[in-house]
Amino acid sequence: MTEPTSQERTHTPASTSERITTEQVAKVAKLARLRLTEEELTRFTGQLGDVLEHAADLDLLDLEGVEPMAQPIPLANVFRKDVPGPILDRDEVLAVAPAAEDGFFRVPPVLGESE
């Protein structure tokens, strides 16, 4: 994933009432490493817009001073004891990988990507 440019970072805060555009969906698809056809881009933009439009009802709520809840249980900083235990068998893991070589996952060249 590419880092957002400074211009993107200083984006004006969005409102949930703005309708998502095809340009935004195209950008999101690229960030998510998905390639969309023109037909998909149009269709997904409409469908995502509908969901976000429904979500605009959240703007009605007064959320001043409300703490966010990222997960439901009061556990925090759960550590295991630092002792060796059973781990996955490397050969078994690599045997179901798309490509492997010398104990590693093998991938095509990383450099030379055209963005």
């Binding site: 957002p4 993107e8 970072r9 984006h11 004006t12 805060p13 969005a14 409102s15 949930t16 998502i20 935004q24 969906v25 999101v28 698809a29 960030l31 998510a32 998905l34 997904f44 995502l48 969901v51 976000l52 979500a55 959240l58 709520l61 959320l63 409300v66 703490e67 966010p68 809840m69 990222a70």
Partner: peptide, 25 residues
């Protein structure tokens, strides 16, 4: 794509952040 959008720069607070507060409510 919806999730990537809700977490993306400039939209995180308006979407994901808001949703987490609604979760508290």
């Amino acid at each position: 794509m919806l999730g990537t959008y809700a977490l993306s720069a400039g939209y995180y607070d308006a979407f994901y952040g808001t949703a987490l507060k609604v979760r508290t409510l």
